[in-house]
Design a protein around this nucleic acid. Structure first.
Lengths: 404, 404
DNA sequence: CGAACTTCGGCCCTCAATGGGCCGAAGTTC
DNA sequence: GAACTTCGGCCCATTGAGGGCCGAAGTTCG
């Protein structure tokens, strides 16, 4: 496995890419199923597949279970193709992983980070961690097939440049692609973190189809949009910036300059702020205790207090859910998604918060169809980011040969 | 031109359909331009085109202007293919037209209608008007290539059935397709009126691409969504139902059961209601005069009073614009459209209303990109509906052979 | 005013790829 | 154990795609 790997991907024909995408999406694919899915004749498909098997891009994993006749051969992306280097950068966290083309996490590192420290310090950690993981897996930089990375701000996907990230001062115009070029000689795909999460959910659904939303509520609030099975980025790549949707014309002023932004009223910092205020004002003994004992009061602490019966904490949790739900109700009426996936640190607040969101959304969704919309936490959990980044990197190579 | 026309369309190959779609979208197309657009070699394209010309589906309209060498032949859809029967049904209006495949309106009728009279009475008028127009143009029912129709409520596009239309009692489950089957033996394509308007705008932009919104403000408020150059309908076909987005948690109760719906506070009836209230309360002499003189007080009347300096009328117009703008601001943050097209009766209120909308949207759009979003009235004017319906019918035939 | 250059459309010919048919292998259901 | 299904591999005729070439029609120079 040398640099030839990269060039091998680079010289794939469009049809070969199409077949590999088919294998990626279908998961456990046989030749027959692929031919049906892609609308190929079995001759054509077989010609392409055998070529890819010989070339080492596809592997046969033995027979699948029978459906009444001879068992089909299980096709999968070859693991010795290389690995996907995946980075999930949050506002306050960094998650780096190596993922096989079969979407298995081979190794990972998670640590606290702060994007406000600027690209220099953060990217240094990214490179160090990636290097450590590669060494741990006895892999060389040439073995990296593609790099996928999610960042907590808008990205000009084509160039991979960050554009005016409000919570990422100092990153404006920074080229992650260029920065990582020294580490690995592979395509670098960068996108907004919610888009990356949405891609992860899309992969998890095992089909490049559907219309749904992935909403991340943490330090800020963002939304990944899947329309027709594809990530929707909007006319300028700024779609999904829902944190500054107004949910209360009489609400408090947000740092963006407007009033009543949902992010300023219901995201993590707002919950923490309200809880601290209640604790300090003596409105809630329970919250005051936690603050005194631990010195901090984070959303999960507030949720715990609410579950344990603290009325003030419960009101704060419900208020947050209600406001997020109001925003989501607008989106549901407009976009009519089949479901909404919730992620981000604040989802750790648990079922009370979720119930408030649901109540708020269902109460404001009038159409029969939208009344049954499913609102659930991500099943991918904390690995959603790196898995999405893996899908981003892999699809970047399969869609366009890594040229974003 | 007999029923063979329909069967001729029905037996087109996918490639032929693709070329015809290319001609439809490009407007004034030459062979070379088409080959480039579609990614065909000139041999391939020429083979298909000559076939279509011989078959009478395409026509050559003489040479285009030169670009430095021999002039290209102007290709267009043949007008003797048949006509598109187009119906634009509003909540209170009916617009029927015959349109040539080249998107020229051949004949039209417009009249007042009320969908609440139920499908029987309304569809009778539709059929009568279509029959009149056909007779006037000396066309037979067999000459109708397809029927396109927009209705003011959600439609299950595949079956052509109306689903739970709030302002269309009695239409639930009514099949327009079946109803019109007796009149013409051609594909019948039915969609929500805003989706039809969006299709009209898409055609007017001369390219099946882009991400934008078409917002209709009249009796209700609806929104047609164009995503990636295609009409986006959502998971259940209910997307764009923005009339019941909440813009004021303390607002008045809407007939839908919630409070603060933008439709209940800013659409035509709300403006009329506020104006009448102000007139009757003696707050505005000007409005009271109009009401006394004409016995009515419609949004355009209010706008006229505002332009003539009436402060109360101005406040009503601005309030409506402000509320619509607040809703649009949410959509802009979420969807990041390149522009927003406004249609519907209330657009007749003019520049004062538009200015309020713009001010409200720009004030709440924080991203640099979304600050420059263009908000403008439809350039298609009152014909937007039937032109969109024509595009719906024609594309229905070109996309899927009329099988919706 | 004419020669050189461009652009366009039609035609032909070669080459490749596509799809269908056929067969043997491997399982399942009686 | 026989009949039926399903799958993969192979072959081969046929189609259809692409490139090249030429003539026609215009434009831009000298």
């Amino acid at each position: 496995m040398t640099t030839q790997v990269y060039s091998r991907w680079d010289h794939l024909t469009p049809v070969e890419r199409q077949v590999l995408r088919g294998v990626f999406w279908s998961g456990a694919a046989s030749r027959g199923a692929l031919a049906d899915t892609l609308g190929f004749s079995k001759s054509r498909l077989n010609a392409v597949v055998s070529n890819l098997v010989v070339g080492g891009l596809l592997q046969e994993l033995g027979p699948l279970s029978s459906t009444g006749g001879r068992r089909a051969e299980h096709l999968a992306l070859a693991p010795d193709l290389g690995v996907l280097a995946c980075v999930d950068l949050g506002a306050t966290s960094l998650h780096v992983a190596l993922v096989a083309p079969t979407m298995t996490v081979l190794a990972e590192r998670r640590e606290v980070a702060d994007v406000r420290h600027g690209p220099g310090r953060v990217m240094q950690r990214v490179k160090t961690l990636l290097g450590d993981l590669l060494a741990e897996q006895r892999l060389r930089p040439e073995d990296v097939l593609a790099v996928g990375m999610g960042v907590p701000g808008p990205v000009e996907v084509h160039s991979g440049l960050l554009v005016s990230p409000p919570i990422m001062p100092g990153w404006e115009g920074f080229s992650i692609r260029e920065d990582l070029a020294g580490l690995v000689d592979a395509p670098v795909l960068v996108d907004n973190d919610v888009n990356v999460l949405a891609l992860g959910e899309l992969w998890h659904a095992r089909q490049p189809a559907g219309d749904f939303l992935v909403v991340k509520v943490g330090t800020g609030i963002g939304c990944g949009i899947v329309s027709g099975g594809r990530i929707y980025r909007g006319a300028d790549g700024a779609a999904g910036d829902v944190g500054h949707i107004c949910v209360d014309p009489l609400g408090p002023r947000c740092h963006c300059g407007n009033v009543g932004c949902v992010e300023a009223m219901a995201a993590g910092p707002a919950v923490a702020r309200d809880a601290r205020r209640a604790a300090e004002a003596g409105e809630s003994e329970r919250l005051a205790e936690v603050l005194a004992e631990t010195g901090r009061l984070e959303p999960p602490d507030v949720a715990r207090a609410a579950r344990e019966g603290d009325a003030v904490a419960l009101a704060i949790v419900q208020r947050s859910g209600q406001l997020v739900g109001m925003m989501l109700a607008s989106l549901v009426n407009f976009f009519n998604p089949s479901h909404i996936v919730l992620t981000g640190g604040i989802v750790g607040m648990g079922p009370l918060w979720l119930a408030s969101i649901r109540q708020s959304v269902y109460g404001r969704s009038l159409a029969l169809s939208t009344r049954h919309i499913e609102i659930r936490p991500s099943t991918l959990g904390e690995r959603g980011g790196v898995l999405g980044a893996a899908a981003l990197g892999l699809l970047g190579v399969l869609d366009r040969g890594g040229r974003p």
